[in-house]
Each structure stands twice: as C-alpha cells, then as structure tokens.
Amino acid sequence: MLILHTSDLLAEAYAARLLASLAGVALEIRHLDIHPGRDHETDAFRVLSPLGRLPVLEGAGAPLADWQAVLCAIATRGDTPARADAPGWWRGADPAFIGWLGMARDLAASAGVARLHEGLGVPADGAALRAAAHALLREVERHLWFAERAGQRWLLAGEGPCAADIACYVHIALCEEGGIARMDYPAIRRWVDRIRHLPGYIVTSGTFAPPAPAPVRQPVRA
C-alpha cells in the first residue's frame, strides 16, 4: 500500500493526490501540520525526508521525498498493462516530457513560492518571483496556443494528459494566490479547464470542480 505523507497546503502534495486519483492509484493519506505547526521539522520526519520536504511516498521501495519522484512512482503504477496502448502518465523516454517536468519545477520555485509567501507569510521577494513566473507562463501560453492549433489538448502530443501536465497544472491552477493573474494566458486557462474536466479529477482548496449539469427546474418568471 502506498502511504503519502502530505499537507493540504502544498501544491506538490496536491499533484500527488490528483495524479493518483486520475491514474486510479490508491493512496493512504497521513497529514502533517506544517502551519503553524512544524511536523515536517521533527527528527522523526527528517528520517523520511532529510530536507524536511513534502510530500513523501512510502511503500514504493525506499521512501521518496522529491515530489517528482513521487509522481513517477504513482504514474508508473497507473500505467498498468491494461493501459499499455495508451500514451501513459509517465513518458520518461520523451525529451519533451523531461523538459515539461523541468518547467514544473521552475513554476514551483517561482509561482509556488509566491503563493506560500502571500498566503502563509513565507519570506520571499514576491515581485521577483511574480516576474519569473510570468516569463515562464508566457512560454507555456505560446506552446499551448500552437498545440491547440495543431489539434493537441495537452502539453505533449498524444491522446491524453501525462504526469507533466499535472505537475505544471497544480502550480498554474493556484498561481493567482501568489498575485500572478492568468488573464494574459487564454490558452492556459482553457487547458486548466480541460484538466478540471478529466474523469477522476479532485479539487484542492483553491480549485473548483466543474458544476453538475443544470438541474431540470420550473422556469422562473421575473
């Protein structure tokens, strides 16, 4: 059984839970109090995660304390033989996939930290982080706009999304909490909507599930 040590406050932890839900991988969740608690700084937790980072995944060999390593473990479990004909959540042999995982890290270091700065008071240079995030988002926008033009709905060519979409999504979907508006990026906003509509999509506080279709109701005359 995979055990995920997590905090609902962190985008990287949401990425793990979201990918697990989309990929049909079961997780046992263990919550840590990281604000204002400091569960992630205890000696016991440092054994699992020497840098005090979250999320941490146990049950897939040695504990994994890097969020993208966690995504890899979850994604590869989700790419079962039954799904062998699909492009798969993990596309590690595709250089573009690696590049987009890198973009996700860059987004975490800019938009992700800006969000923690604005919301939880983590010390940071908010203006510099926002500028860095906007430069990255301009490139994501350019890529997605041309991808849409070629009939592509996700970051990589192929039938469905992959772990790189999820890794980028969590930071982009929550970036407005860091003062980074998405108004300039209409292709990104449409991609965000497509991810929300995926079967198995789950929210974190800060994102909203698509509403159920309108219920049948009596017309209301004003």
């Binding site: 609902d8 406050l9 919550h31 109090d33 608690g37 919301g119 407005e176 909490e177 506080s205 800060g206």
Partner: peptide, 20 residues
C-alpha cells in the same frame, strides 16, 4: 486540535480565491 486546524484550513482556503 490538529484535525480541527486541518479542517479549518481546508475550509478557509476554499474561500480565499472567492475573496480574491
């Protein structure tokens, strides 16, 4: 107390994007 705190954070962080 930790579970009260987690529930409250979950709820308040749902309001944050509305407020903003």
């Amino acid at each position: 107390p930790a579970d009260l705190r987690r529930f409250q954070q979950l709820i308040f962080l749902q309001d944050k994007p509305i407020l903003e």
